[in-house]
Design a protein around this nucleic acid. Sequence first.
DNA 1: CGCTATCTGATAGCGCCACTATCTATGATG
DNA 2: CATCATAGATAGTGGCGCTATCAGATAGCG
Lengths: 210, 210
Amino acid sequence: MRIGELSRRTGVSVPTIKFYVREGLLPAGELTSPNQASYGEAHVQRLRLIRALLDVGGMSIAEIRCVIEAVDDPDRPVHEVLGTAASRMVPRHDREPGAGIEAARRKVDELITERGWHTVPSNLASESLATALAALDEVGHGAFIEVLDVYADAAELVARADLDYVARNVAREELVESTVVGTVLGDAIFSALRRMAHVDASDRLFGEAT
Amino acid sequence: MRIGELSRRTGVSVPTIKFYVREGLLPAGELTSPNQASYGEAHVQRLRLIRALLDVGGMSIAEIRCVIEAVDDPDRPVHEVLGTAASRMVPRHDREPGAGIEAARRKVDELITERGWHTVPSNLASESLATALAALDEVGHGAFIEVLDVYADAAELVARADLDYVARNVAREELVESTVVGTVLGDAIFSALRRMAHVDASDRLFGEAT
DNA sequence: CGCTATCTGATAGCGCCACTATCTATGATG
DNA sequence: CATCATAGATAGTGGCGCTATCAGATAGCG
């Protein structure tokens, strides 16, 4: 198919498709003549992936490029790539090194030890967690640490379900892409569910009092 | 205290503080003379809140302004404000109305009914959820719906813990701010924990195979 | 064959956002 | 009195995700 049809089928404008090709998110179409290229189902698929990560996942073009490079490289050990993919998509944390970050890091290490989690030092998620805990503390809600265990329980629950799904439904060559999609969209899904559950719970607690 | 000290104590530059005042995120200091104003602890607190929502929560200035207006308005019924605050901070979902969105909405309604969740139609979270589910489907992972129940279980778990924490630790006048902080930073915390749990779980499954 | 719509590839520009720089006039401070 | 900090205002910056425009080539139709 040519670029116009690709555009129509995905809802992405032609200039934007070209932009993605330039940015290395999308492979170029196969040239059939010096100024004609043909695109296939893989391009449709890839474009949908890009839009999902961008619109729903809130990732930047640069982050998506990292992830896509991992997806496209078949010569990476599965486990490493999964770790990388998961680590890639941590939200930006450009905040300065506040005083509380050290205490937060210790708290995180403690949690990891208690739970016996196998984790890699390079995993940015733990740093991310420490940053969030430090921010919480700075804002005057250090006591929130109390419920961290419940959060960790819930995270384990969800992570098991995710892996289970992957093991049952996903072929090996789609592993990385599925992980990425699941990680990013799963965040959005859980986040929405949590808000809905909040409304429900607060309705039950404070509801009748208007 | 004067603006310089406020800047030093929060790590936010003086021009940026002025910018936040212009943008209505931060109340102006109390003028002690035509060109001197004094700031108090409330300003420090507010600045920390802004930076937490911005850096860790990834919210935009405009979203933060909405939330802060709710925080500053004491004449709102608690329950409504909690709902508003929670609804405010849904990630941007400017994607086009793909075909699958209707089916996803139905699935969401089904979930709400099954769970007996008290929710308001205006709650943007359910729309957000539908969008994410539709995106998942488009990307070829419609089967992920299977694990939605586990996600909902986990969300209920976390939401109960959140409300519990709030009921035990938070005074009424801080309710809204705490909700906002908890919602936004809680997302970041859970997200990080989930990634860590993923690494752990995938290590146990695929780990030894390198 | 001519005609128009479409295509490739390239460069330049736009709109938004979160600041940041610079300026003037004024007052604080040692 | 000299120096520094400040208020308030306006303009500018850099990054990001596109978007507009163009030249030149081709497709497909009558």
